[in-house]
Structure formats: structure tokens, C-alpha cells
Simulated scan of single mutants.
Amino acid sequence: MAGAPRVVAAARLGYRVPFVPGLRVGVDGKFTGCTQLRQASNLSVPGYMVFHLGASYTTRLSGYDVTLRAAVTNLADRRYGEFQYADYIKPGDPRSVSLNARIDF
């Protein structure tokens, strides 16, 4: 079937750092197998694997709960193609870094 990889597998590992209360780190990976672009199965996109890394730190500042987060997606800056629709692929997202903060009032 066009657009449906035969295999998709994902895993996530998280860890609460015991000597830094409120700090969590994690890594996840996703494997997507070869994807057919046409029903005739004569054109396909090769499989790929990407990894993401993240951390969050929760604390209390001036009486408010604050969560700081950082993440790196596509850690290895893997170049890959993703099925968009029949006969068309789009480039996968490049490595990116995100930072954010949440303050609960």
C-alpha cells in the first residue's frame, strides 16, 4: 500500500536525575521502514531512523511553579525523505533545538 511503511518502531527512555530534584532527561528513537510511493510498488523511499534528546527542570520561583524545557530533534541531523502523498516525498525535518518555559500562575 502506498504511503504505509511495512515497519515502524519507536522507543523512549526517561531518567529522573536523583541528585538534582526536578530534573528529567530523555531520549527517544523512531525507525520507519521502506515506504512505497506508488501502488505498483515500483518506487519507494528508503527507511530511516531518527533520535531526539530532551530535558526538563521543574522548580518553584517566587511562589510559582516553573518548568524549563530543552530539546534537540533529529540529533544526528539525518537526511531522509517522508511520504507526503502518492508519487511525492518531502524532506524530513533537519536538526533543530527548542527551548521553552512554563509558569503556572
Rank of each mutant, 00 (worst) to 15 (best):
Q84K: 06
V25T: 12
V25I: 15
R6Q: 12
A11E: 04
E82Y: 03
I89F: 12
R38I: 02
A101Q: 02
R95M: 07
I103K: 00
R12P: 01
R12A: 08
M1T: 12
T58N: 04
Q84F: 14
A55R: 01
L43G: 04
V66G: 09
Y80F: 15
R60S: 08
T35G: 05
G81Q: 14
R12C: 00
L75E: 06
G92A: 08
M1H: 10
L53M: 10
P5S: 01
Y48Q: 03
R69G: 06
L37H: 02
L68M: 11
Y85P: 00
Y15Q: 01
Y15R: 01
Y15K: 00
R102V: 12
G81L: 15
L13D: 02
S56F: 01
V45L: 15
D77Y: 09
L23G: 06
V45S: 14
M49I: 08
A4F: 11
F83G: 08
T73D: 13
F105I: 12
A40G: 09
A55W: 03
K90Q: 12
V50C: 04
Y48D: 08
L99A: 10
Q39L: 10
Y85H: 13
S41G: 11
R79V: 11
H52V: 00
S44F: 14
L75F: 13
Y85V: 03
V97K: 05
G92S: 10
S56D: 15
V27I: 15
G3F: 06
S98T: 13
G92P: 12
G26K: 01
A4H: 07
T58Q: 14
V72L: 12
P91G: 11
G29C: 07
S44N: 05
A9C: 00
E82D: 13
A101C: 13
T67N: 10
D93Q: 13
A71L: 03
G22A: 03
F83W: 12
A70H: 03
R69P: 08
P5K: 01
K30I: 11
L99T: 03
L75K: 05
G92M: 00
L13F: 11
Y80S: 02
R95N: 04
Y64W: 13
K90C: 00
S56P: 00
G63C: 07
L53V: 15
V45R: 02
G22Y: 07
R6A: 13
G63V: 05
A2L: 04
P94S: 07
R38G: 00
D93G: 08
V7S: 05
Y80L: 02
F19Q: 11
D77F: 07
D65P: 03
F19N: 09
L68Q: 01
F105W: 15
A76G: 15
I89M: 10
S98Q: 11
Q36R: 02
Q84N: 13
R102S: 09
P5Y: 03
G54I: 02
L75I: 09
I103T: 07
V8Y: 05
G26L: 01
F83C: 08
L99N: 03
